[in-house]
């Protein structure tokens, strides 16, 4: 009687302490806590197991858990850092941190490059291993870019002639593939983005600036839940 019981904070597997995540991302501890609110909401939308499954991710993006989308699939794959088919809380925060307005632009450019490297055909060349040069991720612009343009047109029920698609792809290739080897390496990609900054607009989410307003969390602040 008169006893004041603190409810034990029951965190699901995959949970990581906000203080640790805040130390390696641009987020504050409060913002990571707010992200946990968002994460909980997303991760219990279909299966309440503390993990975001592909269907839950699709449901959040499209209001439809069955909607297939090439680009959403790639985002999910990149967020799923452990490649185990689900997004854990730590993976969610670390991946979203690249989209923070204060995240380094170089990280945004690199993330987008990996996103568009559809089949992850990155290769390490012997000379580069020997000289410890940067790993060059090469991608076949013609094939992958055309595939992505077609996916986008299909998504929006737009029809363009094959010639028009080729024209858009070739024009982009002429500008981006300065070495004229049919591929874009990370160096060419950085140059191309510099000339076309609108390409990385999608890598900044202004919502991440107002997280604590949208998803207020009092758990860490008070150390007590459900009071």
């Amino acid at each position: 009687m008169g006893c004041f019981c603190l409810k034990k904070l029951g965190h699901k597997p995959g949970y990581e302490a906000p203080i640790n995540l805040a130390s390696e991302t641009p987020f504050t501890v409060n913002e990571v806590e707010a992200l946990y609110d968002l994460f909980k909401k997303l991760s219990r939308s279909i299966i309440d197991d503390g993990l975001i499954h592909k269907e839950e991710f699709q449901l959040a993006l499209f209001k439809n858990s069955n909607k297939q989308n090439l680009f959403a699939d790639r985002i999910f794959e990149l967020f799923d850092i452990k490649h185990n088919g689900v997004i854990e809380f730590g993976e969610f925060v670390r991946s979203l941190s690249v989209f923070h307005p204060n995240a380094p632009e170089a990280d945004k450019i690199a993330f987008l490059f990996r996103l568009y490297d559809l089949r992850q055909t990155g290769c390490i060349e012997a000379e580069e291993i020997l000289t410890f040069h940067l790993i060059f991720l090469l991608y076949d612009l013609n094939r992958k870019l055309k595939e992505m343009v077609k996916a986008l047109l299909c998504e929006n029920n737009m029809s363009l002639s094959e010639d028009m698609v080729d024209l858009i792809v070739e024009k982009t290739m002429m500008e981006a593939d300065t070495k004229r080897d049919g591929k874009i390496d990370d160096e060419e990609w950085k140059e191309f983005v510099k000339k076309n900054p609108s390409i990385i607009k999608i890598m900044t989410l202004s919502d991440l600036k107002e997280l604590t307003l949208a998803f207020p969390s009092f758990v860490m602040n008070s150390g007590v839940s459900d009071l």
Binding site: A60, L70, F71, E155
Partner: peptide, 26 residues
């Protein structure tokens, strides 16, 4: 309508699958 001047990556970036703002909708 796809403007002829639009580069392929600008076009791709309009995909709904790349619009993560939807995650933050209440």
């Amino acid at each position: 309508v796809v403007p002829a001047t639009m580069n392929a990556f600008e076009l791709i970036s309009t995909s709904q699958g790349l619009n993560l703002s939807s995650l933050f909708e209440k």
